[in-house]
Structure formats: C-alpha cells, structure tokens
Design a binder for these strands. Structure first.
Lengths: 184, 184, 184, 184
DNA sequence: TATGAATGAGGCTTCATTCAT
DNA sequence: CATGAATGAAGCCTCATTCAT
C-alpha cells in the first residue's frame, strides 16, 4: 500500500511538472488532477497550498543543482570556471522546468515557501562559488549571490519565445563582466 | 466637453499607471475605474482591450526613451557611453513604470500590441546604439538588440522586492561583458 | 430648418430599418445611431422607447398594406382571391422588413405600441377580407382574423434560414384549408 | 453520491424547464440556479453551454414524440389520420414545453446542437408520415417534412398570449390544405 | 483515504439610459 | 437641439476550495 501511495505521488508530481511547463504555475488544479488521473481533493490533501506542490515538483532538481556546486568547485582549479559551469546547470534547471522561473519571479507573497526553499538551498552554493572566485582573484568582489541567482533567473524568462533571445549568451556576458581586471 | 474628456482621460491614465504599478497589469479593470473615479464602461469605451490601455499608459515614456537614443549618441564621442546612459534611461522607464516589465514578459498573445509598439520604437534605437559601439570597436559585435532589450527588461523584474537585488548593477556587468577585449 | 429635420428623420428611419433587418429589433441603439450618423441622444429625443422607433420604422409599410385590402377586394369578384393576394402583400411586408415578424412575436410587454398599431390597422382589413370570403361562401367561417394575422406572421419567421422552408407555400396550404367544402 | 447527483440533475432539469417556460430559453443562468437551489457552477459543470442544457431539458419529450410516429402509423389504416394525431403530439410538446418553440426559431448559431438533435430525431418521423400519406393518396406530395416541422413549430409561438390565437386550429387548416383533391 | 460535486466569489464585458456641454 | 461621454446594472463564465459520500 505504501508502494501504491508512492506511485501515486510520483504520478502527481510528473503531471504537475508537465502542466506547469505547458500552462504555467498558475494552471488550474483540476487540469493537474485530470492529467494525474486523480481527484482534486487528493491533491489538496497532500499539498494544501499551491506553493507546496510547486516546491515538491521542483525539489529534486533544485537539490541536484545545489549538490553540483561543491562538486564542480572541487573538480577544477578555476573557481570561475566552476561558477560558469554551475550557472549552466542552473540555467538548465530553469529552462527545462519551465514554470520555475515564472514561479520565482512571481509576486513574492504567493510561492513564499518555494522562494524560501530555493534560497535556502542555492544561496549558500552561489555564495561559495562567488567567494571562491573572488578569493582566487578571478572576479571582482561585491556581487551579492542573491542578485546573481535572481538575475540569472530573470534572464531565463521567456527563453523560448523568440529565437533572437538567448539567455545563455547574456548570462555569459554577465559573468564576463564580473571578471578582473575590470575595464572601464 | 472636449476639455472634460481630456481631463478624464488623464485621470484614467494616471490611475491605471498607479494600479499597474501596485497590482500589476492584470489588475481588475474595476480597481482602475474606482481609482479613477469613473465607471468601468468609460474605460472600455476608450480602451476596448486591456492591451490598449497598457499601451496608452506607457506610450509617453516609451516615446521619450526612444527619442533619447539618438540624442545621447550625438552628445558624446563614445558610443559605448551613450549606450550605457541610454540603458540607464531604459531602466528608469522599466522600474518607474512598474508593470511594464511584467507586461513585456507576459504571455506574448496578450499585450501583443504593446510588444509591437515597444519593439517598433525601441528596437531601432537599440540597434543604432549597438552598431555604433561595435563600429567604434568599443564592444564586440554579435549581440542582437532584441536580446539586449529583453534581457534588460527581464533583469528589471522584481527590482524592488529585495534590497539585495540591484538590476542596475547587473546590467552594468552585462554591458561590461560586451566590451573589448574579450577576456576568456 | 424643417426640411433638415425631415431629412434627418428619414435618415434615421432608414438606418433603423437596415439595422433591424440585419441584427434584429433588439440591436444596440448605438449601432443605429452610428449608421444614421447621429448621436444616441437624438434618437432618444425623438423616440423615447425602442417600440416608438420600431413603430415609426414600419409605419409606412403597414399603412400601405392596410390600404391594399379594400382595394383588392374591390378589384375582383372573388373575395377569396383578394384575401390570397392580400396575404401575399402581408408576407412581403414581413419578409422584406426582416425584424417586423420578430418584433410582433416578441414578448408582448415590449413593443406593445407596435402590437397595438399593427392590430389597429390590419385587423379590420383582415376581418373585412375574411368576412367577405365567408359571405361569398368561398371559405368556411369561424377563423378569427387575429389568428390568421398572427399565424401568417409566425410562419414568416426564419423565412430565409433554410431553403427547405418556404412560408408562402405553407400559407397557401393554410388558405386552402379554409376553403369550402371542408374535406374531413 | 451517484444518487445525490442524480437527484440534483433532475432538480436542475425541472427548474430549467420551468424557467425556460416562464422566461424563455435566454433566461439568466443564475435564475435557473436559484430555482434549482444550487450554484451556477453546478450548472456549468454539467452543461457547459446553454444549448447543452436546453437539449437535456427537451430530450425526453422529443424522444417520446419521435417514438410515437411509427406507432401511430401502425395503429391506423389512414396515414393521414396518423399524421394528424402525430402533429397533435408534436404541438403538445411545443406548447407544454414553452421555450422549445422559441429555441427552435432562435438564431441558428446558438442552440445549434438542439436544432441538430431535434431534426435528427423528428425529421425522419415526419418524412415517414408524409410519405405514407402521400403514397396512400390522402395528401398531395411535395411538402418538405422540414417545412412542415418548422411551420408547425412557428405556429406554436405565442400560443398562450391571446385567447384568439389557437395554433391547433391553424395547424388543422394547414393539414386540411394538404388533402386531395386540391381545390383551386 | 480518495473522490469529484457543489459552491460562489470575482473578473469580464455590453449596452440602455442619462445628462453635461 | 444635438451630441456622445459616462454610468452601472446585469449577464457571462471560471476556478479555488470545501465537504459529503
């Protein structure tokens, strides 16, 4: 029976992820319930607020991304390179799980738990990477990790609306701008 | 009556701007009508679709911003400096008129006229500035003006949610990243 | 100046007739005003209620139809033939002035003045024709003129929706059914 | 729950039938919801469009009427008599379920499903009856069953507005007019 | 425990009608 | 007088959320 419940949870999370990607994180609950093959009541039982569901949906991905930070830092001699590669993973997270970027930028009161979880896990990672790069004198200091996360998150919005818009390129420019020596 | 109507229009646009700033461009029409002290019908008469109203609200600002581009370019010897100062004005537009950034990022089908107007006016300006800077060899070529506009627009989202997030600093870094010589 | 007013009135009535034909007698007043090139206030001034306007629009046609009855009766030896030809004119009125049939069947409280005027003018004519035919022993007695008018009116509804539906043929059958000797 | 829902459905259909009869098929959904003692959402859940509701309300009656046709034809030697009795049932349907006649006459785009269902069930019946009567040489051929249905439907409009108007008598005359031998 | 039926608040939009100019 | 701007009631419809089964 536990296995059943497990299976159901996964079906729900998969359905929610799909719907969030297709219709945004404000998609009707009924739509998710329908795709998951269950009643809306079941969803409300497990995830009383929409934010709870969103957190659950993005939990794994955020976790993986968080864990990649220290690993990348250990794997290379250049903290800046590690930072760069980590932002790539972060962007993957945001553009693959369409809906996450939207949820993160959304009116802060809604999705507050998602914000909290997101920052709780990723802010230390970004801090570590930035600090390491600054200590190695590869970048100028003074950029708040929060600003970096949020900036990258914002740049990922609408990533597939128009071929002229390539968030990775802009992010690369942003990181380039961090490098020393600063050009006037 | 013309004078009255004129006054009303202005009251409406002011109210809409205020409401858009406070509650986003999806705020209920009723709320705007209430703030403007008029019936909803009056708004629908002048602006049949929400997008029409949004365009009207942002029209002046966009216009001013567009006209500033060539002027700045003429005023300085460094096209890059002109570009930088123009992006400052552009950011002013986006952060002052809170709601514009949101509207620009919003699902393209809604607010299509706003998108069209926005690009119609500002894309040529951004193109001119980028081209001039590239020709002066101050920046590397290859950045699409559309990407720049949209990237800056995205970076301005949520500009006042958190003091740690300063879009101007990120944009400065982005522009810095455009400069020659490119650092690896 | 009187001539001007006259011209305006006619323009209004023509516009109303056209709109009634195209969009029914419940068409928005603004639509009529727009087609007539005048403000809605002007229409309200001359025709305080919608019914007043409808009456005015159909006045001429109803009048002509009413006057044709006695003339047809005088022109022929067969009152039944006169009746038949008169119903043809009546049907012309209803199918040409699309909207009249609709208005006549419409919820009796609205358009009451139209009903009143319509019956005031046409009921005596229908009565005269039916009585003459009955007295000439061409039709069986006992059919109320009101029922005949209304029945024909109803049969004209939707006259152009479907080629399979031909009100004139049905009306011919109805009149045929009135003839003597009655077949069981 | 199934039992409850069933009961609710019936309450809704009864309320809708009553409201349609009293206020026409364009009556506000809220009014129906109020009379049924439920929220508007419940109605929209079961009947997404107004037409769906109208079809459901008239479904049983139309079905019974359709089934009566062949039975009447089998019960008598005179196809014309069967036709006459069937039109009586048809008129019962239209005058009892006030609102059906209105809906059938209404602008074809709305209530299209009702039109379709109505014709799908009743046109074959009318065809069979007319054909049988024509083959028995009791009526003249050449009347389209669609025209007959629609004509009778139209004649039933406003059946209770005025005591002078008796649709059954007019319909009897219409059928009489179909009989052989045709009188000039 | 899962379900999905029911509720009803809330946003949208259209016009009939009034009335200031 | 003519105008048409403004009002706001009224209908529509969509979900978020609750709760009986």
């Amino acid at each position: 029976m536990r296995a059943d419940a497990q299976r159901n949870q996964e079906k729900l999370l998969a359905a929610a992820a799909e719907v969030f990607a297709g219709a945004g994180v404000d998609a009707p609950i009924r739509q998710i319930a329908a795709k998951a093959g269950m009643g809306v009541g079941t969803i409300y039982r497990h995830f009383p607020t929409r934010s709870d569901l969103v957190v659950a949906v993005f939990h794994h991905q955020i976790e993986e991304c968080a864990q990649a930070g220290p690993r990348l830092l250990a794997e290379t001699d250049s903290p800046f390179a590690a930072l760069h590669r980590w932002t790539d993973l972060f962007v993957d997270l945001l553009v693959t799980k369409h809906g996450l970027a939207q949820a993160l930028q959304s009116d802060s009161s809604r999705f507050a738990p998602l914000h909290a979880y997101f920052l709780d896990r990723l802010l230390p990672v970004a801090t570590q990477l930035l600090d390491a790069a600054a200590e190695a004198d590869e970048i100028q200091p003074g950029t708040h990790p929060y600003a970096l996360l949020r900036g990258i998150g914002n740049l990922c919005i609408g990533h597939d609306d128009d071929p002229r818009y390539d968030p990775r390129r802009l992010i690369a420019l942003l990181l380039q701008g961090l490098r020393r020596p600063a050009l006037t």
